[in-house]
Design a protein around this nucleic acid. Structure first.
Lengths: 321, 321
DNA sequence: TTCGGGCGTGATATCGTCAACATGACGACG
DNA sequence: CGTCGTCATGTTGACGATATCACGCCCGAA
């Protein structure tokens, strides 16, 4: 019943433990016949690597951390799933660290260091990162959606480009201007989307109206929604706020899309069942998550810096605009 | 820059490494003065435990695994967050393992074993668990929402009770019967909710109409929704399907709640912004997740079996019924 | 023939921690 | 006053893997 170690496998195969190690680590310096014998012994005994032992010796845990503030946002959940799968594919374990209200980013870093992760993906903490704690030296970091920063590598959606697509779509439909319900000022994604919206309006020679600002939740979309009762076109910074806005507009007796056109951002799964089905900008969370892991693992294994990656966003036209 | 080990702390404090170990592990057999000296040395040098080394020696990784099939469901995301926080509070690391299409539960167990977790929480895999792989011997398991099974401990919401609340609410409003849009047959939560609905109807002497069946997604709610155009009251097995149903009813020219009353299940954050705001049964995901971790950690640390736990559900009355 | 070098393999030391046993000091008790 | 128990602390070895060096062997070049 005891655990099977390399020594057991070695004895069974009539070789030394070191040779077993070489087989496990795919060293080329092993005779094919020996390799086969060792592999047979491994499966006969049901050998499994002892990660802790390897970690102790090599200093690498083959674990990546994920720092996330909230999973209430549908996007974060989707990314988490993509990240979990990408990590598993590469045989890395995934350790989750949450950053809740009082527990701040510094504490998250400390937790990562304690757990000895080889690197970490950070979701949505750009501003806190910038303000707050210095990441522990030597911890490789990939941050999703962050302003440029040379302490880590960035992977992001082309928020501004997506916002331009949305704004353009509304302008092309003949609206004289496009209003905006933005996300919180602390969010990089939010400010990028706002920037794209301004750019596209500017390109059309239109003065941007003052945006409203929510906190990503559908409730805030509803609360800010009254401000748009007189608008004819609104670009909303995410789908969940768009949901609230749709209700606010209905309350105000405005029909969508006849009286007001609405475009969201994210394309979360439920967006197609909003009333009306929401025209929105699709973020490819799966690619984003997979890419973040890919970049991080490359940084860990080659010890080279990686350059920033931007993933395109596309417009999904449904009925709300 | 090298890592600070117990030996370094010991040298700094003028004691042996074993004494440092005793301080770290809160052994009572340490003189208070010595303890203070060691603690001072630890903070002076910035000592951190090396988890891998401890794991190698003790055989315990102080890590719990979380097996989850999908995070697309809002409930799972919420639970994950609660679990992450509860684990961090107890100084356990959390490792995520996903069970995607082809990668089945057996593979998840194998992954857990490789990672050497001390125990695991399994979300929503009751049926696969029952059918499929035997969990590795010695792996302590807490399963959320599962039929009784003596191989693991169960933590669950009182789905049936919640469903009865919903059904009762509709009957009390004067509806002659209550239709049901159920979840997939493979889901324990779904069958429990269906059971509660049937019970409450039976208690009122009403024959249960044949339920429709979706797959938890809002899209399936819309697709099955047409079947309820003639209904006057519908209990939907989760909020996301209710969203789709609301759209289907609107398409059919039916007003909610005037023509049809709808009650959902879960109380996800967006439910209050559905049109109309959704009356639904609230599951306390935070408590559920926290309880799962609490039970699991107790099982790990005391090596005793724990009994099943059921968390109550409550009705949140809004405008849809 | 001799020597250098590549190749497959083995022996040994070590990563940081903790379990088990050892030690020395001191006080209680008969 | 000798013996024994308790307490604080130290010493040793082992957990399972791998880095490093060392060893034979065989082949080709000098």
């Amino acid at each position: 019943m005891a655990r099977v170690s390399m020594a057991d496998v070695a004895a069974h195969a009539g070789v030394s433990a070191q040779t077993v190690s070489r087989v496990v680590n795919q060293s080329p310096r092993v005779d094919p016949a020996t390799r086969a014998r060792v592999e047979a012994a491994m499966s006969a005994l049901g050998y499994r690597m002892h990660r802790a032992a390897r970690a102790l010796r090599t200093g690498q845990t083959r674990t990546i951390g994920l720092v996330v503030s909230t999973l209430a946002s549908v996007g974060n959940s989707r990314m988490l799933q993509a990240i979990a799968e990408a990590a598993a594919e590469r045989d890395y374990a995934l350790a989750i660290v949450t950053v809740a209200g009082t527990r701040d980013i510094a504490e998250a870093f400390s937790q990562l260091r304690d757990q000895g992760v080889d690197g970490a993906v950070v979701l949505n903490e750009a501003t806190r990162l910038a303000r707050g704690a210095e990441p522990p030296a030597g911890l490789r970091l990939v941050v999703v959606d962050s302003p440029p920063d040379d302490r880590f590598t960035i992977v992001q959606t082309d928020h501004a480009g997506g916002a331009r697509l949305a704004t353009r779509h509304l302008l092309d439909a003949g609206h004289r201007t496009v209003h905006h319900l933005a996300g919180p000022v602390t969010s990089f994604a939010s400010s990028e989307r706002e920037r794209g919206w301004r750019q596209e309006l500017a390109a059309a020679g239109i003065d941007a109206p003052e945006p409203e600002r929510g906190d990503w939740t559908s409730r805030s979309g509803y609360e800010r929604g009254v401000a748009f009762a007189a608008a004819s076109a609104v670009f909303v910074a995410n789908d969940q706020m768009a949901l609230g806005l749709l209700r606010a507009l209905a309350d105000a007796g405005r029909r969508v899309p006849e009286d007001v056109a609405v475009v969201g951002f994210d394309d979360i799964v439920d967006a197609s069942e909003y009333r009306p089905p929401l025209t929105t900008v699709r973020q490819d969370f799966d690619v984003l998550g997979a890419r973040a892991v890919e970049v991080l693992v490359r940084m860990i294994e080659t010890d080279e810096a990686a350059s920033a990656q931007t993933i395109g966003a596309s417009l999904v036209v449904r009925d709300s605009a």
